[in-house]
Design a protein around this nucleic acid. Sequence first.
DNA 1: TATTGTTATACTCTATAACTATA
DNA 2: TATAGTTATAGAGTATAACAATA
Lengths: 148, 148
Amino acid sequence: MATTRRDPLTLEVVQLIGSVVARYYEEYDQAAAEHSLTGAQARVLGLLSLEPLPMRRIAQKLKCEPSNVTGIIDRLEGRGLVERRPDPDDRRVKVAAVTETGLTTAGLLRDSLDFAREPLADLSEEERRTLRDLLKRMLGDGSGIDGA
Amino acid sequence: MATTRRDPLTLEVVQLIGSVVARYYEEYDQAAAEHSLTGAQARVLGLLSLEPLPMRRIAQKLKCEPSNVTGIIDRLEGRGLVERRPDPDDRRVKVAAVTETGLTTAGLLRDSLDFAREPLADLSEEERRTLRDLLKRMLGDGSGIDGA
DNA sequence: TATTGTTATACTCTATAACTATA
DNA sequence: TATAGTTATAGAGTATAACAATA
């Protein structure tokens, strides 16, 4: 394995992935900033635009402590992008959901990101298919990243 | 363009790249934490392990304000991993350089990261070559995204 | 006057621990 | 007793503005 890890080709791919990661983050934060959102706020808004979630679930998705979610939701709520709703089945639970404004903002954000990722358009369909398959293999059997 | 951006295959690739980015960051921060370093500290230590740099240059590499570098270097210096040296040619400049201990830590960190990226070993040499070429095309000539 | 690094300030994200209100 | 969310606290990264030393 060490042999495989250290060969020049592998190192080059690793470096390229590093570049992709750097650019992804840079553009993500820039897109968020254009809507006066931090990266974390944009991520949560994106999550909630798919479905409302209890505070606890948001923390799990973000892989952070639940106490942090309070502040992030506070700030999104303060700007009218998100609201807290009671859970009828368990009065301890608060469900965060995007407002109409929040949904619009999330859509704009997604568009900005799609635009930023446009470089993929330079690849032919077959190349994109190849890239997809290689990335899938690289990520393994999907034992879970975003973990649904 | 919009057609290319919106087709299911492209969206799938975009999502996969998102997963790669998420895993990369997760493992990077974890490797850093194993050496009691934050992500930013690990990044700076890695940079300085290649060559000493003036404070200003570090800020440029990190794409952050120079004032932030002061604190990061303070903390690395406080742990004996980095030291500030005067620049003989310009007495305003302070050059940050890794100590011997810092160099060792940077090496261990690099090894952890290589290990974390081992999934690449599942790909054949030809596949890695293909992946390299596709990533290169995706990243373009570095002139930017907007088709600049 | 311009530049380098720093300090001071404020905000956000982060983890930990203690608290509340439910269950 | 256990769980969901919050609060309190502290540390770190970030940007902005003002400052000292040097150019």
